[in-house]
Design a protein around this nucleic acid. Structure first.
Lengths: 211, 211
DNA sequence: CCGCCGCTCCCCCTTAAGATAGAGACTGCC
DNA sequence: GGCAGTCTCTATCTTAAGGGGGAGCGGCGG
């Protein structure tokens, strides 16, 4: 023996479903060239696990308790700008994809991906090669052609999505109803919607808001 | 040998995520008293698998391609009214829960449940004992206190959620705008909302609509 | 048979929403 | 300094939405 001493790819899994973690762990640990070194069940744990183990790859679900995926990506890249993060989620709204990739996540794929694709994505990311499935890449490109909403508009949009009236929104944000209307108008224009309800539908589809 | 000849609990898994199926399969097959006999990746396959294998327990995700979980429950119970179905999903809108349980699913739990709970739920259902986690049961009870929407109201609600105006809804359903308004009014009353946008938010939270 | 319910249509009225067209104040960037 | 973008506010006007009624008609079960 004493043959090849090639270190295996170390992986940290972050997902709030034990079932999914088990599935991924089983898949990964079956491979001769990779192993799971830690698992996290929420955003804070994910960050802590990353710091403690400094894995080659962090596999991350976007929707988690305590701190959502985008925030985790941001924080981990602060800790280590060279961190290799693979997003793996069920959600395919183009906003989430765009946010993660533009912040520096190395890969993004959907949970309905077949086993082989998941494994090759982990390998790719571990070698610092970007991996994004074609459908996901297409969405990211779509998103780039669309106008971005300002922070204030996102605040207003969130309240619109909760069913608040312009007057109510104005009160909560300490602005006048007229200003609230101005923001709503801008939102409608940018989302290409003709009513606030349609705007909510569009925004949800794009992942701008999570109801 | 020749000791006890107790047949193991046969399980069919239906979930559109290979990762989740792997996780469940690994968990189940590690138990001495149960085994996975087949897996399905969409609603149609789930029905076919059930018919072919007649498992003791069918573990079913609600959100699947081709045919959604509620429809699968309905169909499987037509095939075998004594079928033992365990719903396992991420969604906790009370409408889905209510629909499945009132149609005859034996158990309902969320994917973020710990391993032990999942396994004991499978065992319970296999013995024809209902299993529903406390949080889920609470939702089902909540739902019972709420007024139901008529089919027509659900049709209108769907269009409202897509951002259609009353006039547009009327055109699509071949009714007058006044009638559309009447339905919308009824929806607002039943959902205890003051605007259509709030109604959409409430309906989505309850699982009445899936955006 | 009658009453309940769901679906349809109608009225009037008030308020909210959206469209249009400005303008001042602040930021950061070139 | 000037320019761009954002956030704020103003005003007016038209249309859509929502509140409160009433009412006819068909099916279904007591």
């Amino acid at each position: 023996m004493a043959a090849v001493v090639k270190t295996r790819i170390s992986v940290v899994l972050a997902d709030d479903h034990p079932v999914v973690r088990d599935g991924l762990a089983a898949m990964v640990n079956q491979q001769p060239d990779m192993e799971v070194v830690a698992e996290a069940g929420d955003g804070d744990e994910a960050i802590a696990c990353y710091e403690r183990h400094r894995p080659d790859v962090l596999v991350l679900d976007l929707r988690m308790p305590k701190r959502d995926g985008v925030a985790v990506v941001q924080r981990v890249l602060e800790i280590n700008p060279k961190a290799r993060i693979l997003i793996m989620t069920t959600y395919d709204g183009d906003e989430d994809i765009f946010q993660c990739l533009s912040q520096g996540a190395k890969g993004y794929l959907l949970k309905d991906a077949p086993r082989q694709e998941i494994l090759s994505a982990i390998r790719a990311v571990s070698e610092d090669r970007p991996y994004t499935s074609t459908t996901v890449a297409a969405k990211a490109l779509q998103r780039m052609a669309k106008p971005s909403l300002t922070q204030r508009e996102l605040d207003v949009l969130q309240l619109v999505a909760e069913g608040r009236s312009n007057k109510d929104i104005a009160r909560r944000l300490s602005i006048t109803e007229g200003t609230a209307k101005t923001h709503v108008k801008a939102i409608l224009t940018k989302l290409d919607a003709i009513s606030r309800t349609e705007a909510v539908a569009v925004a949800h589809k794009r992942g701008l808001i999570h109801l």
